[in-house]
Design a protein around this nucleic acid. Structure first.
Length: 667
DNA sequence: GCATTCTGTATTTTT
DNA sequence: TACAGAATGC
């Protein structure tokens, strides 16, 4: 790295880059060039001769990890070798791959995502004859998360699920499976029990860097602290104002805790915002000001005042959609703003639908990040389930998913019989089936036994091939043909041939992606296990989009974190949506988090910000009266102009105008 | 025993 | 609206 490149940095950033040894806390406000600083810092370290393999950089998403990797490559002009840039979860899975045997699992373990986890809870609850309506699998699942990560303890309010939890854990073990929480918790457990293992990791990673520190959970912090305590070279970067993942266990107070855990910490604040105009930044500051639990900071912008933030009140969600679509069209045509420099942000995934409709209507190219991920689609999950079972036959959850898909005449009754046998021996379904496969006096009818046998033979045949073969995509493709999967899809959706076609295309795409991954020369370990672990941890945003340019970005505020756009539309800024009604239940902390969410949305914008709040909105079946988000009234009049259709409204009239509008549409 | 159709219900954010 | 579970039909 040439020294003059460091001239691009301001004094605080420069100091952050050059402070390599000892604990370092960087408080980086929105748009303060955080990623840039981190990338320079890593490049600087490499330049200073620190071996790449001793550096561990942890990010929040795979996308961020990939971007950081690319930017370091570009900056250093070197091929990176041995540097670890990964997410907490994939880092955890790598540790487990190496040492999970200490805990009695095999290293071909499956990773259960939310869907699998829920399925397992239902399965176990069924076996234990919990009444079906006493189980809200989603709620129970988040309870289990909190218990497992030590966020809450068993008490009288949740004691009824204690036995269920025990069984849940026992089943995971039998299935040789771990859930997302285990990816962090089990490494901690191993480190606690086997200090020599911990020592290895401490020696290996003498320099640690954590991005988005405000979004780390207690146990993620615990894990990283364990490793960092060896050398004390740990740098964490975060902004408590942008902590928006507390519902997933994130604890922004880790920032304060960090100061206590590492008393000799050096602290650097990045407060100059390079992204937004003065106006937009003031709006953001005025909003976040109302939060009580935050570290004091004063973000400032050296850029122009810029135009005022615009507030719009469309009469319903389809009006809002077409307002956004029309405005985008004119911005594109008159001001030459490229589509990909425009972001449309919403609080919930479901809100994207209306906007999508408007985009389709007006022929605006867009891309959505959010909704169901590619890998969550039914047809793809089926194929992946087959792969999972081949990788880890004890994985009952995935086994159950595929055993009768396509139909093999193995229904409820047959499975119940096998389940009973499996449970009596404490085995997985697959092991139980293998055991009774050739046994005399089997409890199963001949016909069932026959198709079971056929099924097992098929799985074993391809398991062998997939594990030894270098060409998984081809093998898988012939496997899919051999079970007539396409036929099955067409038959399932015979009334909607278009849908069937689409699903089949998805599978082809999946195979193509697998092939690309396998043939990538940079891929060190193109094995089945590696692939499966990887795609389980991949999220919706991580899929390579072959052409990201020329498309408007439509996404939730959560997935917009870390991004920026020339123009931002914040749609659905209504009370009940942001702050979301469901988030407000208990505690004042929740409203603060919603406010941070609003803050994150605002600070994505560089030059223009539009906020719209519908007067009425279709909700479930009916039409709902809406009020503007209370956060809107935190914005002082001189920073925002409200619009009536295309005409600006005097700010003093804005409130009256709103009331009048409401009256008008009441009928 | 299995498949299809129907009904009803629940919709926050995601590694 | 979209999906899961129940009821009904084959």
């Amino acid at each position: 790295m040439k020294l003059d490149e460091l001239k691009d940095l301001n004094p605080q950033q420069l100091k952050a880059v050059k402070t390599i040894n000892g604990p370092l806390l960087i408080i980086a406000g929105a748009g303060s060039g955080k990623t840039r600083t981190l990338v320079y810092r890593l490049a600087w370290m490499i330049e200073k001769g620190i071996p790449q393999k001793s550096i561990l950089a942890l990010t929040f998403t795979n996308k961020a990890a990939r971007e950081m990797w690319l930017r370091i490559c570009k900056l250093t002009g070197k091929k990176l070798k041995g540097l670890t840039v990964s997410t907490f979860h994939s880092f955890g899975s790598k540790i487990l791959k190496n040492c999970i045997h200490h805990l009695g699992y095999k290293n071909n373990f499956s990773i259960y995502d939310q869907v699998d986890k829920t399925a397992l809870i239902k399965e176990v609850a069924g076996e234990m004859s919990f009444s079906p309506d006493s189980i809200d699998a989603y709620k129970v699942s988040s309870l289990f998360s909190k218990i497992k990560t030590g966020l809450i303890e068993w008490d009288h309010s949740n004691d009824q699920y204690r036995s269920l939890y025990r069984e849940y854990q026992a089943h995971l073990k039998v299935y040789n499976a771990v859930d997302f929480d285990d990816l962090i918790i089990l490494p901690i457990e191993i480190f606690g029990k086997y200090t020599d293992v911990l020592e290895t990791y401490r020696n290996k990673y003498s320099y640690i860097m954590v991005d988005e520190f405000q979004d780390t959970s207690n146990c993620q912090y615990e894990l990283i602290k364990l490793i960092a305590k060896g050398n004390n070279n740990i740098c964490v970067v975060g902004d408590d104002d942008q902590s928006i993942y507390s519902w997933r266990g994130a604890n922004y107070q880790n920032i304060m805790q960090f100061e206590r855990d590492f008393p000799d910490v050096r602290e650097i604040k990045l407060e100059q915002n390079y992204r937004s105009t003065k106006n937009i930044l003031s709006v953001a500051n005025r909003v976040i000001m109302h939060n009580r639990n935050r570290k004091e900071k004063s973000l400032w912008s050296g850029l122009d005042r810029g135009s005022l933030v615009e507030g719009h009140y469309p009469k319903n969600e389809s009006d809002e959609g077409s307002f956004i679509a029309r405005t985008i069209k004119s911005l594109h045509a008159r001001e030459d703003i490229p589509f990909h420099e425009i972001g449309v942000l919403v609080r919930t995934n479901s809100l994207t639908r209306y906007i999508e409709e408007a985009f389709l209507e007006e022929n605006i190219p867009y891309r959505i990040s959010g909704g169901t991920s590619f890998f969550q689609r039914k047809e793809i999950k089926d194929i992946i389930s087959y792969m999972r079972v081949m990788a880890n036959p004890d994985d009952d959850i995935n086994f159950l998913r595929i055993i009768n898909r396509p139909r093999r005449g193995l229904g409820k009754k047959a499975l119940e019989t096998i389940r009973t046998i499996a449970d009596s021996k404490g085995m997985s379904l697959y092991s139980a089936m293998s055991a009774i496969r050739y046994a005399y006096g089997s409890p199963l009818p001949e016909k069932i036994k026959h198709s079971l046998n056929e099924f097992l033979t098929l799985i074993e045949y391809y398991r062998e091939k997939l594990l030894s073969n270098r060409n998984m995509a081809d093998t898988l493709s012939s496997f899919i043909d051999s079970i007539d999967y396409q036929e099955y899809i067409s038959l399932e959706h015979r009334s909607k041939p278009k849908l069937a076609r689409y699903k089949i295309d998805n599978i082809k795409n999946f195979l193509r992606m697998l092939e690309d991954w396998e043939k990538d020369p940079d891929n060190m370990d193109p094995s089945l296990y590696n692939y499966l672990n990887r795609i389980t941890l991949i999220t919706r945003d991580d899929i390579d989009d072959n052409d990201e340019t020329g498309k408007v970005n439509l996404m939730t505020i959560h997935s917009a974190k870390g991004l920026e756009f020339e123009v931002v539309f914040l749609a659905g800024a209504e009370d009940g949506i942001i702050p979301h009604a469901r988030s407000l239940g208990d505690g004042e902390d929740n409203i603060e988090e919603e406010r941070r969410l609003f803050y994150v949305a605002i600070t994505r914008a560089r030059k223009k910000l539009f906020i719209s709040s519908c007067l009425k909105r279709r909700y479930m079946k009916g039409l709902m009266e809406c009020s503007p988000s209370p956060f809107l009234s935190d914005i002082p009049d001189e920073l925002i102009s409200f619009f009536k259709g295309e005409e600006p409204v005097d700010s003093s009239e804005a409130n009256d105008y709103f009331a009048a509008l409401k009256e008008q549409f009441k009928r």
